[in-house]
Design a protein around this nucleic acid. Structure first.
Lengths: 252, 252
DNA sequence: CGACTACCTTGACGTAAATCAAGGCTGCAA
DNA sequence: TTGCAGCCTTGATTTACGTCAAGGTAGTCG
């Protein structure tokens, strides 16, 4: 329930300063999983200089929309976002959920247009990383270049996992996989792996997993009946991780 | 039917030479769609120096396997490949088909391990691009770095389209979309957009589109009955592009 | 406070695609 | 030529999930 909203104002003129809580990459508690990973502290400062921390978003505001000119990629600092595309017949395909420390917007690089829209699921703080600056810096810092290649590659492998999930797995398996994914990502951020609040609606989950709301809801009910997890509105508590993994059909 | 197999032997000692048919990027007829795109001719020569053209693969041979150490990305020069992952319960998820001029293997960057396997669907010639060399060259040549970022981003957007296809579209729409995709990619290579031979089996198509063989077969029969296309074994002739597009549910 | 709205759940029913089963091509090898 | 193996097609049946419908709950605003 604690909402962090560091440096909501004064974004440009402000020089980074140690007393500004969480205002730079060097002291951000996410720097073990975010873009600065694997950079020396000198290099982190340079990265820090190009990053803009101007934009706190309210729930359901857009960070960018499909078709917008591509200028930057973004790191989520707090809160959660969804990325989605609208199909020709007006339905919504959610292509990913993004939690603190995760980067979004990379799908805009190929055409200089954002290929999807990004919407805040709750109050969100993001770091904006102008792409041309990132490119220049990447040329100078091999570690950064490599890391960014890796981030993009990771996005590819994650998309491929989703492809497999959608194509081969049952509704139960899909929902279980998502719960495990969120759990894992939480624990990477030193949060509880067994108890958390879902930032997205059932509809969003359905649109991500290729299911209807009704089916998602039924799966949750089933899981609850089987005492695999406890669902109370958006609050989730995993009671039996092993059973959940088994349900997700993930090897051990 | 003409199978091109330039420089099948003598791969290392051989210096590129104009008389070696299609042995370098500069005179490769694919350089308008492949990695060299957007490079100056001086730069192309440098890229050319790091590329190895050693490996002709026979049908059903592997270029790499899931879990192999990641060393290089590959450009298809002739023939076609499929990339696939094996799920925990032993089924196969095809993650992509790769035609001449297309790059595969980028999913290995994130962990230094190939995240999928790549298998030749017919006799295939590839260009191997050692990744560390590509990284170094990218630092020196901003255009190359940008182009490679774009290629990776393109892979992401294509995966996202597949995600949408799997999650939202019927069997008819999926098969129609694949036929259109192959048709488009053929025409980019100056081949017929309406008549081609499928390099992959019905099973592969099913494993790509999240369908069973039977369903794929039935869709082809249906399309044939509707005179949208003519199917003779693996030989496809599109009779009614507009109807095919309509069936694929792609705007106009 | 009540009432509106968005979101979630549950049930009954329908359907697209999977599964099961059989048989027919195609191409290769002896 | 015959035989075999892999691939493809077609039909009958089953099933997981979608659709339709109704009602419940939570959060919000006047």
């Amino acid at each position: 329930m604690t909402i962090r909203l560091a440096d909501a104002g004064d974004n440009n003129a402000l020089k980074p300063c140690i007393h500004d809580y969480q205002v730079n990459c060097g002291n951000c508690r996410l720097n073990g999983i975010c873009l600065p990973l694997a950079l020396e502290s000198d290099d982190i400062e340079q990265l820090d200089d190009i990053i803009q921390r101007s934009k706190p978003l309210q729930k359901s505001q857009h960070l960018y929309r499909e078709g917008d000119a591509f200028k930057s990629v973004y790191a989520v600092r707090s809160g959660a976002m969804k990325a989605y595309k609208t199909t020709d017949d007006g339905r919504e395909q959610v292509t990913g959920f993004y939690f603190p420390g995760e980067i979004l917007g990379m799908d805009g690089i190929s055409n200089n247009l954002h290929a999807s829209s990004a919407k805040a699921l709750e109050t969100v703080a993001v770091c904006e990383i102008p792409f041309t600056s990132l490119e220049k810096l990447s040329s100078l810092m091999p570690n950064l270049q490599r890391h960014f290649f890796q981030l993009m590659s990771r996005e590819i492998t994650e998309d491929q996992q989703l492809i497999t999930l959608l194509s081969k797995n049952s509704a139960d398996e899909r929902v279980a996989s998502l719960m495990l994914s969120i759990s894992t990502r939480n624990s990477k951020r030193k949060l509880s792996a067994t108890q958390f609040r879902l930032p997205m609606s059932r509809v969003d989950i359905g649109n991500y997993l290729g299911l209807t709301v009704e089916t998602v809801s039924r799966v949750f009910s089933r899981m609850q009946k089987l005492e695999i997890l406890r669902v109370e509105n958006k609050e989730i508590r995993i009671l039996d991780v092993a059973a959940l993994q088994k349900m997700a059909n993930v090897g051990t």
